[in-house]
């Protein structure tokens, strides 16, 4: 399994965000993409997932397992997307949120079991009927991840998934996300501005790190990363 981006261009009006970008994302690894805010990282994820705002023009091919998906509607691409705010649907309880992700092909008697399994997997037993508003930030994040995974995506996109979490929760959750993703053996693309995220991703999964700068994506070597790190610290 893999995901491949070819000749991707994005623009808002006359302003070009990304021009003719190519990227290969390997399965089982967490590929990181860094870049300044406003550089178009998140927009790129929207384009890949098929949820681009209609005011933004996008073009280029997206291949998931060799299949072109760029002309499919979002729901048929099978590309999961996880945001920094664990966005649970506020009018549904935890179980219903997870059920929303689960494919309708799973028959009724098995559904609840599957959801319970997912909750156990995320060490969240006993919150099935809870209102998402009452959960802690860490709990919410894990529910959101499980919801995405229950949909059995062929690829996973992470949009700054850890930036809103407390330092303590962040570490354990980050490891949990990467482990789970690697276990599923699907391509993962993570957009972040936190150098720690990329370092963990690299050390755990061996995924490469890229930088989005001046409308182009360039690979970052270890030296560059240190540099970026220093720049951040300053």
């Amino acid at each position: 399994m893999s995901m491949k981006l070819e000749q991707i261009s994005l623009s808002v009006g006359s302003q070009t965000l990304i021009e003719n970008v190519e990227l290969f994302i390997e399965a089982g690894k967490v590929t990181s993409l860094m870049g300044a805010s406003g550089s178009g990282k998140s927009t790129l994820l929207s384009y890949i997932s098929g949820t681009l705002n209609h005011k933004i023009a996008g073009s280029g091919r997206i291949l998931v397992n060799g299949q072109e998906v760029q002309d499919l509607p979002a729901e048929r691409r099978k590309i999961g997307l996880l945001f920094q705010d664990a966005l649970l649907f506020p009018h549904l309880n935890v179980g219903e949120n997870l059920g929303f992700g689960l494919s309708s092909a799973v028959e009724k008697p098995h559904r609840r079991k599957k959801i319970q399994e997912a909750l156990e997997r995320a060490q969240l037993t006993g919150i099935y009927d809870k209102n998402p508003v009452t959960l802690s930030g860490g709990e919410r994040s894990r529910v959101a991840l499980m919801r995405t995974l229950l949909a059995e995506p062929d690829a996973l996109l992470l949009d700054e998934p850890f930036s809103r979490l407390d330092e303590q929760i962040k570490q354990s959750f980050r490891e949990f996300v990467f482990e789970t993703a690697m276990e599923k053996n699907i391509p993962v693309l993570m957009v972040t501005h936190d150098i720690q995220d990329t370092q963990v991703a690299q050390s755990m999964s061996g995924g490469p790190v890229f930088m989005l700068e001046q409308q182009q994506i360039k690979p970052l070597g270890n030296d560059d990363m240190t540099q970026t790190n220093t720049r951040r610290v300053q």
Binding site: Y47, H54, G58, P73
Partner: peptide
């Protein structure tokens, strides 16, 4: 890219 219309 536009959202595809549905039968709805």
């Amino acid at each position: 890219m536009c959202v595809k219309p549905r039968s709805f």
